[in-house]
């Protein structure tokens, strides 16, 4: 780390949240090797998520899913110049320490991996590296922000190619924000209790009408239209996991999802981006998933 000035400070909340601000309007793609990382960068991904197995494979193969091998993460970091994110298990602060020491740009404390702690999430504030965390509702998002998350992604249901849960979660978060905006001050105390969220953050949301960090959406996005749907529902950007590299033509699909995310409000562009992409990932309907296999229910 070069010392640029006697007064320069690293790892502040503004610096951590700031990187997520710069990713807005972009697509973050799951990649499992250097080759996929290069395809994602060439297609216009704004960042990549380095992991050993995409959620669809974690789902298919079962077993405990953990942080990826540092060799794999470093190989991907060496291949691309866009930001590289990597996943740690919920509550596994040592995996997070390892990822920070590798120099990743963002850590995803992710329900896609098997949780390491069924009570506590990682205390994210002492870390220099920023964290993104999943949320299914506003209370969960605010608890994560209170622990130091610098970015939130609505969870959806990873590895399914079924966008319905992603839709539900982003709509829930927006609706709960709107409800806070319409409340009087005395009602906010009860709202904080009901949301199980810190009062100060609840007041801040009621005043500003938005989260204090960037909100991306994730979990089941498989087509350009899915990405545009998430953006029209108010997401700042989109994570695509299995949707790109489990499809027939990953490079074309990745580029098409990038275009649809930027021009989400222009149906002609989204239509053009949707043409001739070959097969989408086959997918699983979330309704067919037995409850214990729903990843979104991990995290609390």
């Amino acid at each position: 780390m070069s010392e640029t000035s006697s007064t320069s400070i690293h790892g502040t909340s503004r610096v951590k949240r700031g990187l997520a601000e710069m990713l807005k309007g972009g697509v973050i793609m799951d990649v499992i090797d250097a080759e996929q990382a290069r395809i994602a960068e060439d297609a216009g991904a704004v960042a990549v998520m380095a992991l050993e197995r995409v959620p669809a494979d974690i789902r298919a193969q079962g077993g405990v899913a953990r942080m990826s091998d540092p060799d794999l993460i470093e190989e991907i970091m060496a291949t691309v110049s866009i930001p590289v994110m990597a996943k740690a298990r919920i509550g596994h602060f040592v995996e997070a320490q390892i990822l920070q020491s590798l120099g990743v740009d963002y850590i995803d404390e992710s329900e896609v991996l098997s949780p390491a702690d069924y009570v506590n999430h990682i205390d994210k504030l002492p870390f220099t590296v920023p964290f993104v965390c999943g949320a299914t509702n506003l209370g969960e998002a605010l608890r994560r922000i209170n622990e130091g998350a610098a970015m939130i992604r609505s969870k959806g249901e990873a590895g399914t190619g079924d966008v319905s849960e992603a839709t539900k979660h982003i709509r829930t978060i927006s609706a709960e924000i709107n409800r806070l905006k319409s409340m009087t001050k005395d009602e906010l105390y009860v709202a904080a209790k009901d949301l199980q969220a810190p009062y100060d953050l609840v007041v801040e949301i009621a005043e500003t009408g938005k989260l204090p960090v960037v909100l991306f959406t994730a979990g089941g996005v498989a087509t350009p239209a899915d990405a545009a749907l998430m953006m029209q529902l108010g997401a700042d950007g989109v994570f695509v996991g299995s949707g790109v590299f489990k499809s027939g033509n990953p490079a074309a699909r990745a580029a098409a999802i990038v275009k649809a995310t930027t021009f989400y409000d222009d149906p002609a562009v989204v239509a053009e981006a949707s043409r001739g992409l070959g097969e989408a990932m086959v997918g699983i309907n979330v309704a067919d998933l037995p409850a214990p296999h729903r990843l979104a229910e991990r995290g609390w």
Partner: peptide, 15 residues
């Protein structure tokens, strides 16, 4: 591009 390194090297300062 990325002249300072990774996000760990991001910073704020007075100039």
């Amino acid at each position: 591009r990325n002249a300072f390194g990774t996000q760990l090297d991001s910073f704020e300062t007075d100039i």
